[in-house]
Design a protein around this nucleic acid. Structure first.
Lengths: 192, 192
DNA sequence: AGCCAATGTCAACGCTTGTTGGCCTACATA
DNA sequence: TATGTAGGCCAACAAGCGTTGACATTGGCT
């Protein structure tokens, strides 16, 4: 049996495997699911396309392995209540600029069901619990977290994917200054 | 010369042409650019794929013909100043639910350069002038209009494309109630 | 009726895609 | 040093793609 996986043991092929994942993330982020071909990814990683199949089974499997997102959301309870909006927006900008994985996920999620579900899962499993720690009424938590995601993903969409010039030009600090009160309100303001 | 086009004259093939455009919009909206194949569109329209080529030249040409958006933005100067946020949000929801063309444009724009430029052009040519009529400082108009587009497109993205359950579930009136103040502030509040 | 262009059908082209299996190479272990 | 196995490359497959050109059919015109 090739490729049994005693979970901690390093394999001789690990450099190739991560080269494939890196190339895959880059291509998915730049091109989306369909146009990111296995052949192009393999070319970027300087290996044969069949290696991708050997290590990740299929294109879907490669995508699943390449796009694993940890938003690393900070503990908002340690902050003064009126600063959580600003903290969230800056943190999201950090995450988005740290690497390409979020851009990849967004580009893919728009045309690929599996990608959409994964994006959905990330916001459900990571943003929702954080929202729970700051929202007054537990019943409103999903809606309030969802509202935050509309604004945050809208910024990412126009800034990093569609690249609307005025949004790209907008200095980071100014974007934060404008969006922070919005997110703050979605999380903490009384239901309108 | 086949297909000269005296602009007003109806052609015998007009029913076929609009059938193609309808099917194209539907497929682009559901699948994005790559997965919306000419063959599938032709099948939906019950015609031969070669007719698509005859009438629209290429897939790019078909897309250009199928996705023409008029946001039909209302005259905001006729409104009390504090209601323009709500008016804009409701109008955008109307537009988005009226037909599939905006969803098609968003799905395509995320992975297709031409689509992204078209989306960009729509907001530049249609939203910007409206913003000019309500913004205090002309110099801030592009940034403020862009901020509005981040929130409006973020809502459309999560509600109509990624279909985040809490956003889909959110009653229309509630979405308006939450977003209206945001848009209102982006357009009219003093620079933070 | 007879012509001609517009409309539609059919089959094929060249190309790219994801995916597969066979084969060679190199290393870790015995 | 011998050997088994993981790593890697190559060539090929079937399917699907956008696109093309040759051919049949229709319908409005004189």
């Amino acid at each position: 049996m090739p490729d049994s996986k005693p979970p901690g043991s390093p394999r001789r092929s690990d450099t190739t495997r991560t080269a494939i994942l890196d190339a895959a993330r880059e291509r998915f982020a730049a091109d989306g699911y369909e146009r990111a071909t296995i052949r192009a990814i393999a070319r970027d990683a300087s290996i044969d396309p069949s290696m991708v199949m050997r290590y990740y089974g299929s294109k879907e499997g490669l995508f699943a392995a390449a796009v694993a997102v940890d938003l690393k959301l900070p503990d908002l309870t340690a902050l003064p209540r009126e600063e959580i909006g600003r903290a969230l927006v800056t943190h999201f900008l950090d995450m988005w600029e740290e690497n390409e994985v979020l851009t990849a996920l967004l580009r893919v999620g728009v045309t690929n069901e599996a990608g959409a579900e994964r994006m959905q899962g990330i916001f459900r499993d990571q943003l929702l619990p954080v929202a729970r720690t700051v929202c007054p009424d537990p019943e409103q938590v999903p809606a309030r977290a969802a509202l935050c995601s509309t604004q945050l993903l809208g910024l990412a969409l126009t800034r990093y994917v569609l690249r609307f010039p005025p949004v790209v030009t907008l200095p980071r600090e100014e974007a934060v200054a404008w969006l922070a009160p919005t997110v703050q309100r979605y999380l903490t303001a009384p239901h309108p």
